[in-house]
């Protein structure tokens, strides 16, 4: 998920601090290990990726620059902001020591668009990718994933007065808007085969079409819809009937299991000490999303690629 959304650059700029920011449900539940953040640099096994990065004093992370709530350039400060960026800083702090807010230029960002995420990891342009990067089996053959650190759900936005649409199946036979080429369109078609899709190049056009009554619903990832709802002055609402799970993972170089384990450990610590929840509240929370329970990380065992196996045997 998370492709065609170059879109609503306007959305996040208007980030209203909606009352929904949750300090409520869960943040304290997983308290564990009792480790407190130290200000001294941690030590790592010689030759590990962590040790190399620490010695270099710098980690390069591929993030999106145009993704509201996850990774987007702030037009005023020129900084890259969002939940993915916060995750990168957490990992940076775990390598270099200190607090995530203080890593500064030790964590540098490179723009990753959907098409260059794998090449960037393979050729070492970046050390990891945190760019609304959905974990799936195809991608696992080329890169490895830590996480997931977030589960994106596709939801539905309707007019505030609408009471007929309560779940994705209610969209059968209805005119529904999404963006050309997005997985959102594919997903809704799978769940509601009779849906009549109207596809624009941006979600803001979908919002217009909803207002004009040309469509009765707009569907895509909840964070994007949240942004549209928050700028609609109460005209639209989120149905809050999520019907997909898109696990966002942190891409690392294929086969670097030690680094992947380290990132997973770091995520679990952040879940436990509340850093993850506060990062969420600072970013996605500002566009109206409730802070969810963090997803459990998936420490899958990597299978060697067939290609690699053949090469070693033939030589």
């Amino acid at each position: 998920m998370g492709r065609a959304r170059w879109i609503g650059a306007s959305l996040v700029a208007v980030a209203l601090t909606a009352g929904a920011c949750g300090s409520s449900d869960d943040s304290g539940t997983v308290k564990g290990g009792g480790q407190t953040a130290t200000t001294t640099a941690p030590s790592f096994a010689a030759g590990s990726t962590m040790a190399t990065l620490q010695a270099k004093g710098k980690i390069t992370v591929g993030v999106k620059f145009d993704q509201p709530g996850f990774g987007q350039r702030n037009p005023t400060t020129n900084d890259i902001e969002g939940f993915d960026v916060e995750m990168a800083k957490l990992i940076g702090a775990a390598i270099f020591g200190g607090k995530a807010a203080d890593v500064g230029s030790k964590v540098s960002f490179v723009e990753s668009v959907s098409a260059n995420r794998e090449p960037y990891l393979q050729n070492g342009t970046v050390d990891m990718v945190i760019a609304t990067y959905t974990i799936n089996d195809t991608r696992k053959q080329i890169v490895d994933f830590a996480g997931p650190y977030f589960i994106a759900h596709q939801d539905i936005m309707v007019k505030a007065s609408d009471t007929t649409i309560k779940s994705v199946t209610d969209l059968n036979g209805k005119k529904v808007c999404s963006v050309t080429g997005s997985t959102s369109a594919t997903n809704v078609k799978a769940k509601a085969p009779q849906v009549d899709l109207t596809l624009f190049d941006t979600y803001s056009k979908c919002a217009e079409a909803l207002g004009d009554g040309r469509v009765v619903a707009v569907t895509t990832d909840a964070p994007i819809l949240g942004g549209l709802v928050s700028t609609s002055n109460g005209a639209y609402k989120l149905v809050k009937a999520p019907f997909t799970d898109e696990p966002y993972g942190i891409g690392v170089k294929k086969g670097d299991t030690a680094f992947r384990t380290f990132v997973n450990d770091t995520l679990e610590k952040a879940y436990a000490n509340g850093d993850w929840a506060s990062a969420f509240a600072r970013t996605l929370g500002k566009i109206g999303l409730d802070t969810p329970t963090p997803p459990p990380v998936d420490r899958y065992t990597t299978t060697p690629t067939t290609a690699a196996a053949t090469t070693t045997t033939t030589k």
Partner: peptide, 23 residues
């Protein structure tokens, strides 16, 4: 016209680019 939901060649191009990752 692809920007207003008309399924022409450009529309298809955008759609396939995103679903296949082979721009």
């Amino acid at each position: 016209a692809s920007t207003i939901a008309v399924m022409d060649l450009s529309f298809l191009g955008t759609q396939l680019t995103n679903s296949t990752g082979r721009p």
